[in-house]
Simulated assay, not measured.
Amino acid sequence: MSSALSPELRQLWLDGISAGSIVPCVGPGVLADVVSTRDGRRIPATSDELIIALNGGKPMSPKLMFEFSRAAMNIELKRGRNAIKRFLDTTYASDEWSRAATHDWLRALHPAYVIDINRDMQLLDSYAGIPHQVVLGCARLGGSAFRYLLYRNDGSGYVRIEPELGDPALPTLFKPLGAPLPGGVVKPDGTRIAESSYIASDADHVDFITELMGGFAVPAFLKRRREGLRYLLIGLRLQRDTERMVLAELFHGAASEPAGWALLPDASANERRFCTRLGLQIIDADFNELIGATTGVAENRQLA
């Protein structure tokens, strides 16, 4: 059962996000209005867009077009894992992209905890100059059972810290599928190095989700902090198994009745079943109704 977006519900969300009891969870749809300031092309965000960009602007075979993780696995097998990392670094570490209206909206609210399944830097840029910490998903990392990297930013740059040093009082930005870090990481000697981490290929997803289900992909402080929270899904379709599996684990310990809300215009049967299972209420509305923006583009660029 879906509902419409009422002024009362919108205010409930705004109050909850500001108070920290409601967690925004953003997906590819929020980047629908982001374009290159150099040539006007849209930032690759959806599965199809990422595949085509990875393949030099051309579609791949129907079998590989099914999902970005499958296409990335194909490229990894042919050219190595670093080929995928270089592509994502080149795409998302660039400063050429315009700002998303949704990220400007979130910046004004300054949420204490945000989940962003995109791999771009706009959410991190929104907290520039503000002390915060970032959790980046990682996979196939030797010598550690953990499947995340934790960084703290005191307002001047990122420093990688050990899991036990996570601060529950700091705003936390969770990027489960990874991102490049804006400005790089500050080493103990004061030098900066570029650093990034991504979940991209099928092999990455299998490793990450397996450890996520085992409890090794979420910092301990965040496991305690997330108990009883509710979630608001913005710009995120729920048609792919990989996204659904990640979210189901990240929402562990959520409040009930409801566990949150999903802005899903014309939700599919699969999306409805998933939301019912997680206790999410579907709101049949475009997320631009929530943020009060008119972008001139469709809200949720499909993940097909």
Rank of each mutant, 00 (worst) to 15 (best):
L5P: 03
P7Q: 03
E8L: 09
L14E: 15
G16M: 05
G16P: 03
I17S: 08
S18P: 08
I22W: 05
V23M: 06
C25V: 15
V26A: 01
G27N: 04
V34S: 02
V34W: 02
V34L: 07
S36G: 09
R38W: 15
D39T: 12
D48L: 12
E49H: 03
I51D: 10
I51M: 12
I51C: 14
I52M: 15
A53N: 11
A53L: 12
P59T: 08
M60K: 11
L64I: 03
L64Y: 10
M65Y: 08
L77F: 12
G80A: 04
R81V: 12
A83V: 06
T90S: 14
T91G: 10
Y92M: 03
S98W: 07
T102R: 03
A108P: 09
Y113V: 15
Y113H: 14
V114P: 02
V114A: 09
R119Y: 10
L124R: 04
L124A: 15
H132D: 01
Q133I: 02
V134C: 07
A139E: 09
R140C: 05
L141D: 13
G142R: 15
G143W: 02
S144L: 04
F146V: 09
Y151K: 01
R152G: 07
R152Q: 14
D154I: 05
D154E: 08
G155D: 00
S156G: 09
G157P: 07
Y158K: 03
V159S: 15
R160E: 14
I161P: 03
P163M: 03
P163T: 00
E164S: 10
L165H: 14
G166L: 04
A169C: 09
L170M: 11
T172A: 02
L177D: 05
G178W: 00
G178I: 01
L181N: 10
K187T: 08
K187H: 09
D189Y: 09
S197R: 11
I199M: 12
A200C: 10
D202L: 13
D204R: 10
H205A: 10
H205G: 08
I209N: 06
I209F: 02
M213H: 13
G214M: 07
A217E: 02
P219F: 01
L222T: 13
K223M: 08
R226A: 13
Y231L: 05
I234R: 00
G235W: 03
G235F: 05
L236W: 01
Q239E: 15
Q239L: 05
R240F: 06
R244V: 06
R244K: 11
R244F: 00
V246H: 01
E249T: 03
E249I: 03
F251R: 09
A255M: 04
A255I: 06
L263W: 02
P265N: 07
P265M: 04
A269E: 14
C275M: 01
T276Y: 00
R277H: 13
R277G: 02
R277E: 11
G279D: 04
L280C: 00
L280M: 06
Q281N: 07
D284C: 02
A285I: 01
F287A: 00
F287H: 09
N288H: 15
L290S: 02
I291G: 04
G292V: 01
G292N: 04
T295E: 13
T295K: 05
V297S: 12
R301S: 07
